[in-house]
Each structure stands twice: as structure tokens, then as C-alpha cells.
């Protein structure tokens, strides 16, 4: 028989447990990406001479594979005295990688703020910090939430790469089950179905969010 249901039921709890690790990696990685990306985008505006440096940095990060960046942080950082466990190194790499993408999204959001908003802030003598916190960010973020959401989903789908440095997330767990039992069909298919389900649900959520935001801006 190609598909063994009793085997499926047996491995489901193990995979469910691993799924928690995948989701944790996703959430921590995304918080890192969203925060660092925002910092990059803000610094770029607040300190104009950094613009070129940040562009090059973003291009460098986006031009090289995440897998190699994961290896780099996991294997090269210890040579400089920074030893990280596999989960931390992997999540850090994912966070930095997606920060580069997120910073471009924020940048687009800031570019869409009308110049008059900056000018009114100057005329009211607001500090740069207050201008960002109270005027620019509250207007710039809502329209880009769907784009950030898409990156959250993309990031989630890259967490299987953590298996390359033996983080016990879904893919690694499925592989171990496979090599222990010589049955790959069920574990790997289940992992695929899990990602598919999560992606379809998130896509629907993002679409709903988009509609909600459109309605709000119509006000």
C-alpha cells in the first residue's frame, strides 16, 4: 500500500510538535525582520548619507542565497567568538534576510506619504522622532500590511532550510522519520500539506485584511 494510515496517525503527534518549532522560528524571524527592516528604512530617511550604504547592503543580502547566509552565521560567526546554537543562528539569518526585503516595503510606504505631511511637521516644529512616531509611521504602515503579510508567508515557507543545520523543525523531523523507517511518503507529504494549508489560510486572511484596509482608507 502506498499510503499507510496507521503510520500516519503514529507520526502525526511528532510532526505536530515539530510544527511548533517551525511556527516559533517564523514568528521570531518575522519580528526581527519587521523591526530591523523598519530601522533600515527610517535610518535611510533620517540620515540621508546612509542611503547608498543601505542600498548596497540590501542588494548584497538579497543577491545571495538564504541557505548560504544560514551557513555563514552558523559556521563563520563562531570564528569571531560568537557561538550560536542552530535555532538562534538560523532564525537570525532568516530575520536579517527578510529585513532586507521588508525595508524596501517600508520604503515604498514612506515614499507614498505626501510631502505636505513632512512640511506640516516642520512647521509645527515636531522633532524627527515625533514626526516618524506620530505622523509618518501611522500613515505609512497600514497600506503596506498586506505586503508585509506576504513576506511573513514567504518567510514561513523558508523555515525548512533550517533543517540544513539540523534544527528540529518540520522538515528535519520528517527526514529523520523517513531515514528511521524508510517511509518518506507520509512524513514529507504531510509536511507539504501542512504548508499548503497554512499558505491558503494566510492568503485568505491577507485578502480579507486588504479589503478591510481599503474600506478604512475610503473613510
Amino acid at each position: 500500500m502506498i499510503w499507510d494510515w496507521s503510520f500516519t496517525l503514529e507520526i502525526l503527534p511528532v510532526l505536530a510538535h515539530a510544527a511548533i518549532v517551525s511556527v516559533e522560528a517564523t514568528l521570531i524571524g518575522f519580528v526581527l525582520a519587521a523591526t530591523l527592516g523598519l530601522v533600515l528604512a527610517v535610518v535611510r530617511i533620517a540620515v540621508p548619507w546612509t542611503g547608498w550604504t543601505i542600498s548596497v547592503l540590501v542588494e548584497l543580502i538579497r543577491s545571495t542565497p538564504l541557505l548560504i547566509q544560514i551557513f555563514f552565521i552558523y559556521f563563520v560567526f563562531p570564528k569571531f567568538g560568537l557561538v550560536l546554537d542552530a535555532f538562534t543562528a538560523g532564525v537570525l539569518a532568516i530575520g536579517i534576510h527578510y529585513a532586507a526585503y521588508c525595508s524596501e516595503v517600508y520604503r515604498a510606504g514612506f515614499d507614498n506619504i505626501h510631502r505636505g505631511q513632512w512640511e506640516a511637521s516642520i512647521a509645527l516644529n515636531l522633532s524627527a522622532w515625533t514626526t516618524f512616531r506620530d505622523i509618518i509611521i501611522p500613515q505609512a504602515i497600514p497600506p503596506i500590511v498586506p505586503a508585509l503579510g506576504n513576506y511573513l508567508v514567504a518567510l514561513f515557507k523558508e523555515t525548512p532550510l533550517l533543517s540544513a543545520i539540523a534544527v528540529m523543525e518540520l522538515m528535519q523531523t520528517a527526514k529523520i522519520i523517513g531515514s528511521d523507517t524508510f517511509r518518506y511518503t507520509e512524513p514529507i507529504t504531510l509536511v507539504g500539506l501542512f504548508f499548503l494549508a497554512m499558505s491558503l489560510v494566510s492568503a485568505a486572511l491577507i485578502r480579507a485584511l486588504e479589503r478591510l484596509l481599503n474600506r478604512r482608507t475610503m473613510r
Partner: peptide, 25 residues
């Protein structure tokens, strides 16, 4: 300064527009 295109903060009420700078600055 008052601008040709008003430049009110669209995410704030009239009141919030008027107290933002007095409070923060």
C-alpha cells in the same frame, strides 16, 4: 504656517491635530 493644501494629519481628528505639537514639542 498654513499651507495651500492644508496638510492636516489625516489619521487624526481635528482636536488631535491641534494638540499633537503642543504636547510633544
Amino acid at each position: 504656517m498654513v499651507f495651500q493644501s492644508f496638510n492636516l494629519f489625516p489619521h487624526m481628528t481635528a482636536m488631535a491635530n491641534c494638540i499633537e505639537a503642543p504636547m510633544t514639542v
